[in-house]
Write a protein that binds this DNA or RNA. Structure first.
Lengths: 156, 156
DNA sequence: ATCAAAGCGGACCGATTTAGTACAGTTTCG
DNA sequence: CGAAACTGTACTAAATCGGTCCGCTTTGAT
């Protein structure tokens, strides 16, 4: 399926919640309660976000998480990278531990060409939406214009 | 993960193979052999494509599958719809059998707004690539222009 | 008429991923 | 000291995915 995991979705919600109150220290409980989601789930994604350097954690009583950075400087692409890890639409290019390609057909594969183009387009779309956009709710809706870019058709 | 299933990828490969030889009846074995993929996998996706009306099947000796339509009229979006079934980046909007929303927070959910915008953008991208593009290998690489379309930010 | 090639419709299984839970730490404030 | 809160890890149950296998039907050739 072409969808993000629920955990990643939770992570985006948590990030938006924090970004809407910049600098404020908010407990995982509060966020979980707001979205009616199980607390352990929220703590899990907040930890991930913290490890990715996107939010800050504050331990001890009265602790929690906070977003101290610039919401405009954080992109949806960064969030997804941290939450989902590296991903690709197809795995043609991925290699195993020995550096050997997992896909046996490689050069003959017509899928590589265009799938990685689409891949890149989608990642580009994610890079153009900032956390600030998400927090504001009104997002600049990216569209894809086919005609305009036939120029960059020759990727790799 | 944000990726298409391998089966779907096989389906695209098969469709491209057929589209490159319009009208020709090709056996699943031939396609499987060409891509070095297991025959049952290819037959499975070809069946799916046939049920979706995207390719035609020919039974009996000398039978196989063929693509008889106009490759320019078939979009990548259609292919993915048939191969992956209906999909959405997030499942906020999906309802159960009784029409009740699966997502408990719904209106309060900040995710809906932008995720469905992204969703739509990606689907739009898929609609702008035709099977003919795929078959030719040279694809018009769609990009996403943020600035140009703030106008349609207010979706639903 | 018979046989073999080929598609059709399932069922099935093992491996992986996902969603969610649990629990034993550790830090910090009052 | 004790409670609130994050940290880290482990675990299970369910769903999905990739792949295989079977018996059936259609059809062309001998």
């Amino acid at each position: 399926m072409l969808k993000i995991s629920r955990l990643t979705d939770y992570g985006l919600l948590a990030a938006v919640y924090l970004a809407r109150r910049p600098g404020a220290v908010v407990s995982a409980r509060e966020i979980a309660a707001f979205y009616h989601l199980p607390v352990p789930m929220i703590t899990k994604v907040l930890k991930t976000l913290q490890q990715g350097g996107l939010v800050q954690s504050h331990r001890g009583v009265g602790g929690g998480y906070s977003f101290d950075g610039d919401a405009e400087a954080v992109t949806l692409g960064q969030l997804l990278d941290v939450l989902e890890g590296p991903w690709d639409l197809v795995e043609c290019e991925t290699t195993d531990d020995s550096g050997h390609a997992l896909c046996s057909i490689r050069v003959a594969c017509p899928s590589r060409r265009f799938m990685f183009g689409i891949n890149r387009a989608i990642k580009g779309a994610f890079e153009q939406v900032s956390l600030g956009d998400l927090a504001r709710g009104a997002l600049p809706m990216p569209i894809l214009d086919k005609g305009a870019l036939t120029a960059r058709a020759e990727i790799q």
